[in-house]
Design a protein around this nucleic acid. Structure first.
Lengths: 339, 339
DNA sequence: CTGAAAGCGCTAACAC
DNA sequence: GTGTTAGCGCTTTCAG
């Protein structure tokens, strides 16, 4: 079962290799009868073009890199990334692209590997999830002329020239905080995430909601957490000392940790302290109590990242694309709005 | 900043392209002075060989495919897969391989995409996590002559010719059950996973432990669950009707769900019902109560899968490699062995 | 509308 | 030890 070549397919079909190539690549101007014949041979032989030869001749690999820079390992505990990855994988399959995965655990690994991949022509474009403020990865790849889209919003300083797909974190936080305010809570805390841009936006939305009702922000009611359940637990324990009536958590995992901390303290959610999360992960609905949360379209984010990248690759050079997806508030029991 | 070629590097260094190629590929028999000169030029220019040309000439892509066949989406909720992926990614980076990710949500997607990748020569080898008994993916790729290793044990029927990396599920379950028996529990239940080979092995180990103490297995104390926390919750609720004194759960997520079900029923772990899990995920230690569980080396599994595959690719054709990693019982509060 | 021919950038005999 | 040369299998002008 030796692998066939274009030439051989041509021989069988009685045409030249150029014609076979044209058929495969969907060129117009092929006599229908010929096209038919060639397609039949391809189907019968199960022929698949050699991808290395294709890349070499066309300087297109049809491979996208999916990059998650340093320190993502912990974040991997959050189901957010698995979900994005699934979406990206599916979209790539759909469009005959192959997603290559690059996770970096150290800066050294990032340096060495990224150098290898961007310069070897192995990759047509990059999807980067670089939400950490400190990450320098994006500014590094900007120097190469490889197309890329970022998931999450870039730093303000370079936002104009970078394509991204993000959700409206600010509006989501605004919704969450407004909801709590409307329910009558006043001492509203925040379990916030630092070092990431989404967190900054959520914080801004939160503050805006309070400001719009002329409510002061009590800085002592803001605790910083990582994205884990355990982080939320610890942060909430600290916050408990200062007697908040309600908290807005920057992720569902954090919110779940907070609820556990509240329970461990002998208090109840939402009766004693109301909780709102962010994400609307599957477990939010089945939590105890079910979690009021800001739903963000995670899967759609991944899909759009791929589609945007394809678009950029196709029309490059192109102006940067900026996509911000809407979010919605899902009201459940944990905020005290429903029994 | 046009991309350089071997030829040009050779020109700069004053040697032929072959010599440069030899230097890059670490051939012996190069005059040290020449090697030095060439390496300097490469470093200074930041030259990276074109990977398509390399693949074409050498028929080696240095890309591995990481395949997760159908129905994995739900399993993705389990932190097991993210952890394996991280390990694989890291090991690939280490060895200058690129991991390409293939998740399949439908059989059709699996069919189309796998056909494309195995036949196009884009991939040197495959790492397959096909633990579902029903999966036909492995038997399909066996027909191509592409090297692959499976994570988890293959079906008995084809185990001889397939390379795999697995953990000793049977021994782990045996350890868990024996632990409970030694603590004096007799009505020991199981929250089992169906349709997967690891689950079958864990079930076997569980039964063996009982058999070795001449204890009967009460089939009514075995409930089937999926791998999620919610699944464990539901299964435990059902099991509660039949009054088990202890349960062995097939994963930590399931165990956590079970503990929640026990608590919701107004009972306590381990006082009323002891619980043992499997995996030793990070959250097992911080659970309430901390979870007694069987620790399996997930990260190591991924690393070994890559290293085994590299070994196979290098020495192909080669006899199948069978690696079974040991597990250990981690005793914490949930089994009632420590206060 | 189709074929011939010239590469794409590299590896690997084969010479010397 | 190092250079010369012939492909790897495809895309893409250029003819006709």
């Amino acid at each position: 079962m030796k692998r066939l070549t274009l030439e051989e397919i041509g021989q069988i079909a009685g045409v030249s290799r150029s014609t076979v190539s044209r058929v495969i690549n969907g060129h117009p101007n092929i006599r229908p009868a010929v096209r038919q014949r060639v397609e039949d041979v391809i189907r019968q032989t199960g022929y698949q073009p050699n991808s290395a030869a294709r890349s070499l001749a066309s300087s297109q690999s049809r491979v996208f890199g999916l990059v998650m820079p340093s320190l993502m390992q912990s974040a991997f505990a959050d189901p957010y990334y698995p979900m994005v990855i699934q979406a990206i994988s599916h979209a790539c399959n759909q469009h005959d692209y192959t997603p290559a995965l690059f996770l970096f655990q150290t800066l050294e690994e990032e340096e060495k590997t990224s150098q290898r991949i961007v310069a070897s022509g192995m990759i047509d474009g990059l999807i980067v999830t670089a939400d950490t403020i400190e990450s320098t990865f994006v500014s590094k790849i900007q120097q190469y002329d490889i197309p890329f889209v970022q998931i999450g919003r870039p730093l303000q300083s370079s936002i104009a020239e970078i394509s991204y797909v993000d959700v409206d974190n600010e509006a989501g936080a605004y919704l969450a905080a407004s909801h709590l305010i409307q329910l009558g809570y006043r001492r509203i805390g925040q379990l916030a995430t630092a070092h990431n841009i989404a967190g900054a936006h959520r914080d801004a939305g939160f503050r805006q909601a309070l400001a719009d009702r002329s409510l002061p922000v009590d800085e002592s009611l803001i605790e910083v957490s990582d994205f884990s359940e355990a982080g939320g637990y610890d942060a909430m324990r600290a916050l408990l000392e200062r007697g908040p009536e309600a908290v807005f958590a920057h992720s569902d995992a954090i919110a779940l940790g907070a609820i556990r901390a509240i329970r461990d303290r002998g208090l109840k959610t939402p009766n004693d302290i109301a909780v709102v999360g962010f994400d609307d992960m599957p477990l939010a609905a089945s939590a105890d109590p079910p979690l009021t949360t800001v739903r963000q379209p995670i899967y759609r984010t991944g899909t759009l990242a791929v589609e945007t990248l394809i678009d950029i690759v196709k029309t490059s050079p192109a102006p940067a694309r900026h996509i911000v997806l809407p979010v919605e508030l899902v009201i459940r029991a944990s905020s005290g709005a429903v029994n």
